[in-house]
């Protein structure tokens, strides 16, 4: 069980990224973190892996071990990191190296450093290849990662995480830079492998439909505080309005505002983005029941473009 107790993170000079967060994560649940950029989703995930140590509060890992306040490379911390694998938005692979080499990085924990200078053992390679097979990329094992597409790179990132034999999988906006179709495939993949291995997935997203489609539990953050924690069907319009700090009136107002030219007239990119975002948020807020299927797909695309 992962446990955050009164965790706050303050970045200098005075940015409060997390504000007194109390959360518990149990084995085997697919949890989605929702929130705007800057709401503290990334910081929360990085706290769980202790890439970011909390300014205040405790991070308690499996076996009730307190993990905050340890040295950056303490053995106990490395042990914890090994079981809490991370998947990053920008995959964070070493692009010059082959996919399988990147996956092998996931197996470093617990190995002695001199082994890095030896040839990889057959067992290690077998496990790495097995992980690649699970993300359906076995045929790309020896391809350099800079020759892979965005979705494929993200799948290599997932394979690297799986190679760690994790109990928790922390994914920081894993689909934010992918097209809707690929995003769906990557998320189903995460869901499938986590289900098979009883891994707790904690995934931050900014698409509400995707959260509704995949999550068993939704945690919403705004300004570093948890403002919702529960099953996705309990997520109401008011919650969403709070998450995205808007309400129907103001969105409508900005939509009809005379000073904003409507697309497709040529407008500066920023303004167009703003309009699209406003529209898609209005759609979340405006409709009580979001239908799955192509409608969701379309909205998803709109969201992705903005």
């Amino acid at each position: 069980m992962l446990h955050l107790q009164n965790v706050s993170v303050t970045f200098p000079p005075d940015v409060r990224a997390l504000d007194n967060v109390n959360l518990q994560f149990r084995q085997g649940q697919f949890t989605v973190l929702l929130g705007q950029s800057g709401a503290g989703k990334s910081t929360l995930l990085r706290c769980l892996n202790l890439l970011q140590s909390p300014t205040q509060g405790l991070v308690v890992g499996d076996d009730d071990q307190c993990l905050s306040g340890l040295n950056k490379h303490a053995p106990r911390l490395r042990q914890h990191r090994r079981h809490t694998a991370m998947v990053f938005q920008m995959h964070q692979l070493i692009l010059r190296q082959s996919a399988v080499k990147n996956v092998l990085v996931g197996m470093l924990a617990g190995q002695l450093a001199y082994k890095s200078l030896m040839p990889n053992t057959k067992a290690d390679l077998q496990w790495a290849m097995h992980c690649l097979e699970r993300v359906d990329l076995l045929e790309k094992a020896r391809t350099r990662c800079d020759q892979l597409s965005g979705g494929q790179r993200q799948r290599v990132g997932i394979a690297r995480a799986l190679a760690q034999r994790p109990r928790y999988l922390l994914a920081d906006e894993p689909v934010a830079s992918l097209d809707p179709g690929t995003a769906n495939r990557v998320l189903s993949l995460i869901q499938k492998v986590c289900d098979q291995d009883q891994i707790t997935a904690i995934v931050s997203l900014h698409q509400v439909e995707l959260a509704r489609a995949y999550a068993q539990r939704v945690i919403a953050l705004a300004d570093g505080q948890v403002i919702f924690d529960g099953p996705p069907n309990a997520l109401s319009d008011e919650h969403l309005a709070r998450i995205y700090k808007t309400n129907q009136q103001t969105v409508n107002a900005s939509d009809d505002h005379p000073s904003i030219p409507k697309p497709p007239t040529t407008t500066p990119k920023e303004i167009e983005d703003e309009i699209q975002l406003a529209q898609s948020v209005q759609r979340y807020v405006g409709s009580t029941v979001l239908r799955p299927g192509h409608d969701q797909h379309r909205q998803c695309r709109q969201q992705n473009q903005s």
Partner: peptide
């Protein structure tokens, strides 16, 4: 720094982070 952080996140030791996160990037 991004891949270096990723290697750190797997629980690698300081030396392993250098060997697998830093060195491959600077080899060329």
């Amino acid at each position: 720094e991004a891949p270096v952080e990723a290697v750190t996140s797997t629980g690698a030791s300081r030396l392993q982070v250098i060997l697998h996160g830093v060195i491959p990037q600077v080899l060329p």
